[in-house]
Amino acid sequence: MSEEQHTGTDITHDSRSAFDLYHPAVPLVYFTIVIVLSMAAFQPVFCVLSLAGALIYGCYLRGWRAVVRSLRWSLPMVLIIALLNPFFSAFGTTQLFVLLGRTIYLESLVYGLCMGLMLTAMLQWFSNAAVVLTFEKILAIFGNVLPTIGLMLSMIMRFVPMLARRGREVEGVQQACTAIAPRSVRESTSLRVREASVLMGWSLEDSLRTADAMRARGWGGPNSRSVYQRYRFGSADLALTVSFALLGLVCAFLAWVACSQFAFYPTITPLIMWWGYVPYAGLLLLPLFIEFEEALRWMR
């Protein structure tokens, strides 16, 4: 029974980030703003800033090894995108060279590179968000907005590891009964399907017991349901959310200005030093400031 511990991924547990001090809505708002801005602000400096921010925060949250590991498969993808774009979507004015009868332009090469950067940045931000916004926190947000679906998510997360364990049990029994050992690919395929079928019948039947347990504890009763709030939304949460939102708006405006003054085609607009990048960098580094502030408390 305790073997469920060996089912691997531990995803429901709390992480250890400074965002734990706040209501889950706070990091949700933050990551939404950052990811939306990363997608929308398609301008080289913004893309580079976003990726740098994501990597720095990622190194803090997940450790540099994990970041490198995740880059290992996303970097080749970025390179492919960057190189294929000028090959297939050949536009621009600055000819670099001719490959396989196609002219490669600088503009579309840079465009492809930026696209790759943006994609990597977004994936990195998603990975960071996954560390901070654990299932439990997502559930807390869902539970407030859509309580029934929140409960269903909780039930599903209850069932998945149990079914995975049972699936291994069924597989083990099939393997141990040498009398029914498969003799061909066809038989081994049908054993796989049988495994899923056993699992399905078993879990459906068990769910009836679960339903009994739910009704016996008042599910579907006359009172309207309430939701246990594990996290409370306090004034500090509100303050931080509002400041995220305001900073996000400022950055959105600046990004709009930057993007409208910038064009890849027909020639790349030259980039200049501009104070307008600073707030965006600030937004991206904000969680690190919070972490830093928390770390300072412990040093004193």
Binding site: T12, T210, R217, G218, G221, Y228
Partner: peptide, 30 residues
């Protein structure tokens, strides 16, 4: 009512949520 099978009676994914489930159903205040 507590039944025989420990697994089948559990509704939610975590212990705290399971403890809260019955109270939530009856609309008990926070």
């Amino acid at each position: 009512y507590v039944a025989q099978n420990p697994d089948a009676q559990i509704v939610c994914d975590s212990v705290w949520h399971e403890m809260a489930f019955g109270l939530e159903n009856r609309g008990v205040p926070q």
